[in-house]
């Protein structure tokens, strides 16, 4: 299990990197943290002619807050996000989610940009991005594009990123004092990809949701911003409202069957997660509806 031969180049400026991507297009793969790319190379599932290693672009490592936005550079590693005081303060959902991303040795190399550009539908970060209403910043020699996260992910391992474009950062509106968040996933083992997961961000108004953004993952070909949330907003949640939301959720899910779970199981677990999320965020154990004999 050895990678096919490829050529390697390590640009030192973003402009150089963009020039290389423009030059090589589909023949090149961007090497960021490499934690998804390297297994694919070793297994010869991917055999690019060129590997453009952007690891030297130190400008892309920054995590900073300005003008109400938390900006995370594409090369910020998972461990950087996990340990960032800015993330903890302004987007704690990311830190909650990050502990579920693989294992320490992987988090020490894997990057935010690499994770998002890989667009694994079972991955935590893309769902967090749609839940947090993030903007994905991409750049090419033609200039910069800013995409809503929910428009960025378009299929299994598929994004709106063109071959000559580089994902450079994400921008997340900072949490306000009424913001609450929820993260939970059902995974067989610590660090595994989830069978179903939910990253949610909400604004509370008394005992109700003023806003609720539900980012489900591993429920389809891309992370899903569930419109079912609209059933739960603006008034005190009742069991009937929750049931309505669960039904709406089930209707908008289009999960895949795989070795872990058939479609019905994913739908069931998503409903469970929704109930758990609402019950947790509102402090309403009565809504959790645990099954008992």
């Amino acid at each position: 299990m050895k990678a096919s031969a490829f050529s390697y180049i390590r640009p030192t400026t973003i402009d150089d990197a963009l020039a290389l991507l423009a030059q090589y297009g589909e023949q090149a793969k961007v090497l960021s943290g490499g934690q998804s790319l390297m297994p694919a190379l070793n297994l010869r599932l991917s055999a690019p002619e060129w590997l453009v290693d952007i690891g030297g672009l130190s400008d892309l490592r920054t995590i900073a807050v300005s003008r109400g936005l938390l900006r995370i550079g594409a090369l910020a590693r998972h461990v950087d996000v996990l340990k960032s005081a800015d993330v903890a303060e302004h987007a704690p959902l990311l830190a909650d989610a990050m502990v579920h991303v693989a294992h320490p040795a992987i988090r020490n190399k894997g990057t935010m940009g690499g994770n998002l550009a890989h667009a694994d539908p079972a991955s935590e970060m893309p769902a967090c991005m749609i839940a947090l209403d993030a903007v994905i910043v991409v750049r090419s020699r033609a200039g910069e594009r800013r995409l809503q996260a929910r428009d960025f992910f378009i299929g299994i391992y598929e994004t709106a990123l063109a071959a000559e474009e580089l994902l450079v950062a994400v921008e997340i509106p900072v949490a306000n004092q009424n913001s609450v968040r929820f993260f939970h996933e059902y995974a067989r083992r610590n660090g595994d990809y989830a069978i179903v997961g939910l990253a949610a961000s909400a604004t509370l108004d008394g005992g109700s949701f003023a806003d609720l953004r539900l980012g489900f993952f591993a429920v389809g070909d891309r992370p899903l911003l569930a419109t079912a949330a609209r059933h739960l907003i603006g008034r005190p949640v009742t069991a009937a409202m929750l049931a309505e939301a669960q039904a709406a959720l089930e209707a908008e899910l289009d999960p895949q069957e795989d070795q872990q779970a058939p479609v019905a199981m994913r739908k069931h677990l998503a409903r469970q997660l929704l109930a758990l999320c609402v019950a947790t965020l509102l402090g309403r154990a009565d809504l959790e509806a645990r099954r008992s004999a």
Partner: peptide
């Protein structure tokens, strides 16, 4: 050789990494 088993764990610049997932 695909980053799952941890047998190749080494330290690079002070952080543990999977040596099979690094060129």
């Amino acid at each position: 050789e695909h980053g799952v088993c941890g047998a190749c764990t080494v330290r690079v610049d002070g952080d543990i990494v999977r040596a099979c997932l690094l060129l």
